[in-house]
Design a protein around this nucleic acid. Sequence first.
RNA 1: GCGCCCAUAGCUCAGCUGGAUAGAGUACCGCCCUCCGAAGGCGGGGGUCGCACGUUCGAAUCGUGUUGGGCGCGCCA
Length: 590
Amino acid sequence: MLMTSSVYPNFKTHFSELFAQAAHAVAPPDTAIRIELTRTKQANHGDYSCNLAMQLAKSLHKNPRDVANLLIEALPPSPHLDKVEIAGAGFINLFLKNSAKQQYLQYVLQSKEAYGHSQFGQGKKVQVEFVSANPTGPLHVGHGRGAAFGASLANVLAAAGFNVLREFYVNDAGRQMDILTLSTWLRYLELNDIHIPFPQNAYQGEYVKTMAQLIYEAHAQRYRHHPDLLLDDLPESTRETAINTDEQLDKLIANAKKILGEDYAYIHNFVLTEQLGDCRNDLMEFGVEFDVWFSEQSLFNNGLVARAIELLQSKHYLYQQDGATWFRSTDFGDEKDRVVQRENGQFTYFASDIAYHLNKFERGFDQVINIWGADHHGYIPRVKGALQALGLDPAKLEIALVQFAVLYRDGKKAPMSTRSGEFVTLRELRNEVGKDAARFFYVMRKSDQHLDFDLDLAKSQSNENPVYYVQYAHARVCSVLAQWDGNFDELVQLPHANAEELSSPAELALLQKLIDYPDTVEMAAKEFSPHIVAFYLRELAGEFHSYYNSTRFLVPEIPVQHARLALIASIRQVLNNGLKLLGVSAPDKM
RNA sequence: GCGCCCAUAGCUCAGCUGGAUAGAGUACCGCCCUCCGAAGGCGGGGGUCGCACGUUCGAAUCGUGUUGGGCGCGCCA
């Protein structure tokens, strides 16, 4: 048995090579040749089509159909080809032998989970950084889309032969964490009967009170302090009216740090651990896991921020103005220069981001992929600019933008506003529609397209729901195979002998669909578009359902029966593999 | 005002490295369970691919302009 389970012929690649040879024979050596093979839409156009003749017609000063004839004459023979035809303006249409399609069943059944994997990525090291939400509250449905997209993309890249590292960047250093710490402490003080008006621009959510309660239960009054100390240096009015300016909130934070001393770090650490744990747990239940949780604070602790800034300094890309330190990002096409160190000495988020990206590049990835919300697109030029300034190649950084998701319930927009604390969390969404529907709906759309998320549709256990449609196809195959009393291992060996029984148009189309799967995964990886896999699965499920309704599988003639069972078992395998890439389960029963 | 993204069937969207008659789901209408799961299938109507020019053998796809919508233009993250 010489065959390796994950090796199977790729017809597209195979024919491309043949056409390349033919082109060299027909065209002058210096002709620019781009071999393009497409799957045809109509059966009478064959299985694959090539437009090379039309491309070459002009430079060869011949009409396309004549060029096509020359190309066909020069085309080396292929054992997989039944016939070649010229059609239309000069398309060369290729017809596969039925046996070429039929033999694919054994590749699918023997490769199992590995079917669809390819060497496209050549083992290149790729980092995918996604979600990276501030650990200052629950993930909401916007993060959910980034999570679903990032996880699916990472899976698709891995299947296409990339060496993928999944990373979450933890913003544990910034002002937002201080605000959360302060918010929690204020709620804690309330539990100790110390009341000052809760700042409007602090975190309002119930989860803050929950954390305060936990601290109170564990440490009682240990962190209780007199309100006068807290409001020191703040206007008299703040005793009666809630703070709503950034300056006053910062003052409050500074006071809290002064009063609490080392205890501040405890509360800070407590809320961080709580939120991060909650986030990790939430994502795990969503089927999203990370290899690395990268701490922003560590960039400061390890001196990386200082080093990055010094590096820019030494290359003269920094200057002082108005007491702040600026990076000359306009040198690299940005709209304006950007502050890296504020007047008050604090580094900006951008500063640690420069250090983070420097670190990413020093880790030696062939490609670094950031998945951001589309509202951050204005941030791209400065980050790429910083990389260039550091002497790094910005082309290695790919930024995939994910547009917002808008929830619809009863045909109306569900209200969402982060600040007021009125937002739908990812957890609520999962509880309402389930993990599978949420994952599938999130990646059903192109990522750079706004997503209208129909909650009622996602919840409905009916034929309208595309998730169930695909899963149902899988369950149906399982059901048939469960009623068959044969040995599955035999089935895996048999189709080679019996596959010629599969010769109806529906069966040949299904076989071709299975053959298309590895190309589909490769395309999804190349285009950073997992939605391609979702569409493919719906089409495959559709063709299967149609086949199911037209053909009986458990027929008395054993060769026919086995051939058909091998076909639907292969379909099941591909459905399973594809759903897995999207983080959706493939149930045996529903 | 400047920059980025988007506009395709009533609705939600594929298709976009230029290719053959522009597709799917949904909604609407009509059929199919003595038969492996009807959460399924079959059939039908439904289009100026926002608009206008341009590039070419060929444009939903590329370019320019224009209209309409989203987002971004902080010493926030």
